[in-house]
Design a binder for these strands. Structure first.
Lengths: 199, 199
DNA sequence: CTTGTTATCGGAGCGTCGCTCCGCAACAAT
DNA sequence: ATTGTTGCGGAGCGACGCTCCGATAACAAG
């Protein structure tokens, strides 16, 4: 029998048998579309409807909302993570690299409605979204931070985890308030992190 | 008749007639207790149960949740607002005053579970909580900021509204994450606001 | 004391949402 | 054809925000 399949157009078939499980990518595309339209807190029903599947299917592929969100934005988070070392290599100064990276991160968060707000570890450790962002970006942020701090000759005043979460928090609600300038606040915050004055 | 009440200890009576509407203060006390126990996002049913009244009563006195929250924390917000001028007068430097006031504000936000997170103007302008905090505290923060900026001889880099909201955002989630140090982040942010370097 | 008026009270009820769970259908193996 | 396996869909449950109306109680007039 082998795999002499002739009629199956896509047949991802990675598991042992069964139906060609409905393309996860289709779900991700639908979710992305809904996230753009209604924010990352959009009802699961709406995502299911957009994808033309039942809610069960969504939950089967992504048992928790954070997992879905992570999957949707994985590429962009990876791009952001990869941009770190690149900026550090290409920029004139480590501080410039840090500020450029931070601007990238801020732009990413601000353009995704509600993403920054969903970044919290509310569910007592079981928050995959928070964990993913932290695991992936803290090291990157840490490298940039370390380099920048060293280049300006100040002792490190805070760890990368706090800096990253602080930036994330500063981006919350930026889309709903024209007067609120998250980018400016974050850059000022970075100034503080790199400033000589401790108190 | 006057107010020769002899049996009514508190009798607020502000409306014309009817029953001595159930003391709002009792509701506020109950709400405060629940907020401490379950955060400011506690279900209205829970607050009503704690107060021993029906939900209708809660909604009659405080049609929206922000109004209830404002009422519960009004005293502390006022105290915070009043502390501004006082600190400015008593502190050695305007910067010290600003930093002390900010520490006060941060402590206030961090100790009230979820208050910082509820500070957003999500409901398109109709958010009384956001409006109250902004109206009451932005001027205070502005004065301190102005004095501090002037004393260190830097041009103002951002307005008080953004500073206040930034601080509020930095306090989000502080209670759920032992590694997250909101106070430190905010003070670094203030350093940035007062720093010479603009870019 | 009785009756009428009026404001307040309490919670049933409706719509929404997150999440679970079970019957069903489609395919593979026999 | 029959049986086994696996993915699929959505009904259903509990929680919640918020509304709305019948019940209730205080007071004034008679």
């Amino acid at each position: 029998m082998a795999d002499a399949g002739s009629e199956q157009p896509r047949a991802t078939r990675s598991t042992k048998v069964g139906r060609p499980r409905r393309s996860e990518q289709a779900l991700l595309d639908a979710a992305a579309a809904v996230f753009v339209r209604s924010g990352v807190d959009a009802p699961v029903r709406e995502i299911a409807a957009e994808a033309g599947v039942g809610m069960g299917t969504i939950y089967r592929h992504f048992p928790t909302r954070p997992e879905l969100v992570v999957a949707v934005y994985r590429h962009q988070v990876e791009a952001c993570a990869n941009a770190g070392p690149r900026l550090l290599a290409e920029s004139a100064t480590p501080e410039a690299a840090l500020r450029a990276w931070v601007a990238l991160f801020v732009d990413f968060l601000v353009t995704k409605h509600g993403l920054a707000g969903a970044l919290h570890g509310d569910s007592a450790g079981s928050d995959a979204l928070h964990a993913y962002f932290v695991d992936r970006l803290v090291p990157v942020c840490g490298s940039l931070l370390e380099a920048a701090v060293e280049s300006v000759g100040t002792p490190p005043q805070i760890d990368a985890y706090n800096v990253l979460k602080g930036i994330g928090n500063l981006c919350i609600g930026a889309t709903h308030d024209a007067r609120y300038d998250a980018e400016a606040l974050v850059q000022l915050f970075i100034s503080g992190v790199l400033a000589r004055r401790v108190r």
